[in-house]
Design a protein around this nucleic acid. Sequence first.
DNA 1: GCGGACTGCTTACCT
DNA 2: ACAGGTAAGCAGTCCGCG
Length: 871
Amino acid sequence: MTGLDKYLVAAEGEKKGLSDSTSDPKQSLVFTPEPPTELRGGYFTSIGYDGDKRAAFIKLYDPKTQKVHSWYDNTGHKPYCLSDQSVENLQQNEKLAKHPGLDGFARVSKHDGLNEKEVDMTVIVAKDPLSIGGRATGSIRDIVRAWEADIKYVENYIYDRGLKPGMPYDIRNGKLCSTPTKISEEANKSIALFFKGESDDYRQLALEWANLLEQSVPEIRKAALDIEVYSPVATRIPDPMAAEHPVICTSILGSDGVRRVLLLRRTGVAEGNAESLKDAKVEYYDSEEQMFVQIFKALLDYPLVLTFNGDGFDLTYLWHRAQKMGFTRDQIPIEMARDSALLKYGMHIDLYRFFFNRSIQVYAFSQKYRENSLNEVGGALVGIEKKQLDVALPELTYAELAEYCLRDSEIVMQLASFDDNLVIKLILALSRISFMSMEDVSRQGVSSWIRSMMYREHRKRGYLIPRADDILSLKGVTSTEAVIKGKKYKGAIVIEPIPGVHFDVSVLDFMSMYPSIIKKWNLGYETILCKHQECRGNIVPDTPHWVCTRKRSIESVMIGSLRDLRVNWYKSKSKDKSLPPTARSWYRVISDALKVVLNASYGVFGNESFALYCPPVAEATAAIGRHAITQTIDKAKSLGLEVFYGDTDSIFLGAPSMEKLEELIEWSKSRLGMELEVDKSYRYLALSSRKKNYLGVYPDGSVDIKGLTGKKRHVPEFLKNAFYEMIDALSQVKSAQEFEVAREKIKNTVRACYLKLHNRQYSLQDLAFTIMISRSPEGYTKTTPQHVKAARLLEAHGIEIRPGDLIAFVKTRGDPGVKPVQLNPSWQEIDVEKYLEYLESTFDQVLDALEIDFGGLVGGTKLESFFGAGA
DNA sequence: GCGGACTGCTTACCT
DNA sequence: ACAGGTAAGCAGTCCGCG
């Protein structure tokens, strides 16, 4: 069957529909992919599998026409898995031979890296992906012991055809071919130069990465979508599966200037003041169906649709609701998958899922947002928050409802567009690095990205992708003991801090320490504990493990080359002021994307669910890290440098001369093969005896606070304010003598805070601890922490509590000792003593380091006595 | 019956 | 579904105490 047949059938169907389209506008919604025309430079954004056609299809975005073209596979590629048995043997397996999904057998040679040999395998070809695996029972992978059987079909398709998601493609005579690309002479030369000491393979790989990453990126025409649903009970969020209530408002905001608000007319709703909506097109609908037709037309128009929780709510709701209203599946432009909602025409990116990704939150956005609500993320990244509601949604006037809904889409659009489309570009860069589509990359975690990148390299080289259970049975043993009970192996070390105030401190750290170790030590599942006798002497310090000296591991090459590219090329390019802003911002995106991947590249080997899970690899990495920092500290001391503190890959040095720093850096490079750099310098550093707890003041007076209670999310606002007043006083200190001034200011801060507590001058909101509840309240069976007690009180009042919610509560006297802020506690109930204890311990953390006694500061050991003196 | 020493649980942080 | 290490506060347990 050629690609054209499908379109002919579909076109026929559409014609029939058109004949009575005057009576049913829904017929115009039937999606027919545009036939594969000639195309040049269409970006590979999405991939899917068409079950009817039994073929993969690829969506290409053409920046010139701003349209999406779907290209269906016409190479005959089929799903398969591998077996180590002969064809004859497999044919005798009745269950397999009679499997309705079996298509046939073939033979293939592979390199088995785990067992270090060449192997001949049988390819078991299937008619459809579900026959390989995915059905509850009777999948081929359940019948025979198979390799490569749990790789998603579309991923196999990408790897086998050598495709590069995120890159431009042409369609020539119906064939999909890579658009020829090349990188600048400058990049080519510089990279060749940086990698000249490396092997040819390594340099080749670095150039391949550069080819992927240097390629320019298109701007994609996009729209943000948000819906509001009627709910009879204000506190309950409508169930998208049931879709019982009408969609009463929808906003569509396009990058092309479209600003539409679609409202459903209801009885008894006031018009309201629509002043602020004058730049939007407000449309009223008498029927929900008419409104849906409009929404669906937009979904068939935009190449990229953005939502916040569209997978979990908006698109899912629309899909179920449309079905209830009598739209046929053909007339709904949404494709529901198990845990996502996709579009038939363009792509759907659910920003909630992307921002929820821990790696993205921590490494790409430096924890600027702490919760994953639209309000929090929007407020933190683009400075727009959701519109506050005074009454429940159904009671709003049309104008208020429209404003509220439009605001949400505005935030979504801003989140996707700020900093020159940073987020979309980040997803695109990650797509190129991981060889996954943008849609998949935005929904999955960093371990999937790394797995995909590694699988692709295996396939490219003709390596057999190992089974996780085989890696584990051959190389699953660890030998060190973790400090923390229940952990699998020993991790990083933290150097005992030298308490006190230290002036003129430089902090050195190893650039990408763990990736450097994986590269330098050639770590990987193939090479750790390899089979060769001669390698057994190549011991990982602090462990009995040895590493192969004969063969380079895939992990070493892949992670190493990405690290080297980031450190040597992209980091400096992203800061190069001589570049035009758009070029620089793209370099920053690449650098950030690499950072996210590299930061996780060690951890995944210690994670059971990672496809190439190999505990000794993770253990060896950490052990070498401990060795490196220990050796470096010894060397620093031998150079006469003072070492105040260190954690994992950093050392804090006192008043170092430039020469000595240089010498240490040089030593590290030559003796450890690791690059040390000066990360930061402090005017002074205040250390207590606590690890992971310090305060550093930079020469310009800005302050670096790590681990101190006063900055933690859960502490009450009043304490945070007092804490930052103290920090402010300390930031002005330039010499040892000036601490006396700060001391007086801090004393006043504490005194004021104490008095306000005593005189009940804080609002109860200011006194609230806000702690995230990680499970539902019933899930706590071993102990009942305070925030859970508070959550249960809320539940007793009919307030729904879900994992991830922040519980705000104050501490009260007597039982149960807490009361949620939402239940309006009174000042009489407040346990003032507890708050004073908190005040003391929070300040103590810092004052300890300054050798200021809290008791002394307030004129007695007990705060009560201070109050006596103060009042 | 009560308080101190102890362990374990939970959250939030650091690298 | 990246790892382990650390701080802090509280919950719960055990033990001694005439």
